[in-house]
C-alpha cells in the first residue's frame, strides 16, 4: 500500500513539476479548458436559479371569479362548503376590496384604478387542491364542478404558465446538456492533444524507460496525472469565471427582477457546485490523457 501510494505520489510530483516548468503554456491550456467548462456551468446555474424561483410557485391553484352581483356572504358560504369537500387543502376568500387594494399596490395601473368611480373587481376564491388531488384529471373535474355553480363567472386553472415554464426549463436543460457535451468533447480534445505533444516531446525518455523495464502503467501514470491536473486547474479557473460573472450581473438582475415583482436572483456556485466542477474537470482531464496515452505510448517501440 505504501509502495502504491509512493508511486502515485512520485508521478503526481513529477507531473506538477512538468506543469510548473512551463507556466505560460500550462496557463494557456488551463484557460482554454476553463472557458469550455464555464459556459455550460453558467447555463446550469441559470437553469437552477430559474427552477428555484419557479419551484416556489409551481403549485397549481384554481381561482374562482364570481359574478359582480354575488354578495360576499354567498361567497363565504360557498367557501365554507368547499372546505368540506375532499381534495381541497385550503380555500381563501379574496374580496373585491382586497383584490383592488392588492392591484393598486403591486400594479402599474394604480393611477388608472384610482380614476374609476367604483370597484370593477368581483369577489374571488383561491383554491389550493390537496397534493393527492392535483392531477390534471382531478383538477379538470373540480373545475367542471365549480363552473356549474350559477354564481360563478369564471374558473381559472393556473397551470398554463407552469407548463410553459416547465417547457422553458426543459429547453434550457437540453441546451445546457448539448453545450456541455460539445464543450466536454472539446476539453477532451484539448487535453488529449496537449498530452500527445508531451508524449512526443518525451519520446526518448519513454523509450529508455521501456528499455530498462518500465511497465505501460509506469510510463502512462505521469501523463494521466498531468491530464487530471490540467482539468483540475481549468475547472478551478472556470469556477472563478462563473463566480465573477455571477457577482457582476447579480445586482442588475436583482433590480430587474424586483421591477417585475419577482424574487428571482442568480445563485452563486456554492461548495457543492465547486466540488462538482472540480470533479468533472479532473475526470475530463484524466479521460483525455488516458485516450492520448493509450493511443500514442503504445506506438512507441523502443529500439536498441
Amino acid at each position: 500500500m505504501i509502495g502504491w501510494l509512493s508511486r502515485h505520489l512520485q508521478a503526481l510530483v513529477f507531473a506538477l513539476g512538468r506543469l510548473a516548468r512551463a507556466p505560460v503554456a500550462t496557463l494557456f491550456t488551463a484557460v482554454v479548458i476553463a472557458i469550455a467548462l464555464a459556459l455550460p456551468a453558467g447555463f446550469l446555474l441559470l437553469t437552477h436559479s430559474v427552477r428555484d424561483v419557479a419551484g416556489n410557485a409551481t403549485t397549481v391553484d384554481l381561482t374562482v371569479y364570481f359574478k359582480r352581483e354575488v354578495p360576499l356572504e354567498s361567497v363565504q358560504q360557498l367557501a365554507a362548503h368547499l372546505r368540506q369537500r375532499n381534495g381541497i387543502e385550503s380555500v381563501a376568500v379574496i374580496t373585491a376590496d382586497d383584490a383592488l387594494a392588492l392591484m393598486r399596490k403591486d400594479s402599474s395601473l394604480a393611477e388608472a384604478l384610482g380614476a374609476l368611480p367604483d370597484n370593477p373587481l368581483p369577489h374571488a376564491l383561491s383554491i389550493h387542491p390537496a397534493a393527492d388531488a392535483s392531477s390534471s384529471t382531478s383538477l379538470g373535474a373540480l373545475r367542471q364542478y365549480l363552473t356549474a355553480w350559477p354564481e360563478v363567472e369564471l374558473v381559472q386553472l393556473d397551470s398554463d404558465w407552469v407548463r410553459r415554464l416547465d417547457a422553458i426549463l426543459l429547453l434550457m436543460q437540453r441546451i445546457t446538456l448539448g453545450i456541455g457535451t460539445l464543450l466536454g468533447f472539446g476539453v477532451l480534445a484539448v487535453i488529449g492533444n496537449t498530452i500527445r505533444l508531451e508524449i512526443n516531446g518525451r519520446r526518448q525518455e519513454i523509450e529508455i524507460t521501456q528499455l530498462v523495464g518500465g511497465s505501460a502503467a509506469f510510463v502512462r501514470r505521469p501523463f494521466l496525472y498531468t491530464g487530471a491536473l490540467y482539468g483540475l486547474l481549468g475547472s478551478l479557473l472556470a469556477a472563478g469565471i462563473v463566480h465573477t460573472a455571477v457577482a457582476l450581473v447579480a445586482g442588475p438582475v436583482d433590480q430587474l427582477a424586483r421591477s417585475y415583482g419577482s424574487q428571482f436572483a442568480l445563485q452563486p456556485l456554492g461548495g457543492q457546485g465547486l466540488g462538482l466542477m472540480l470533479a468533472v474537470g479532473a475526470l475530463l482531464g484524466l479521460a483525455g490523457a488516458w485516450l492520448a496515452a493509450a493511443r500514442h505510448i503504445s506506438r512507441l517501440q523502443p529500439r536498441a
Binding site: E207, I208, Q210, L211, G213, G214, S215, A216, A304
Partner: peptide
C-alpha cells in the same frame, strides 16, 4: 507482452549511444 517489462528488469542493457536522459 504484459510480462516483457519484468523480463527486461532482469537484463542490464548498455548502448553505443549511451541513451542517457
Amino acid at each position: 507482452v504484459s510480462k516483457v517489462p519484468s523480463f527486461r528488469r532482469q537484463v542490464g542493457m548498455v548502448f553505443q549511444d549511451h541513451r542517457l536522459l
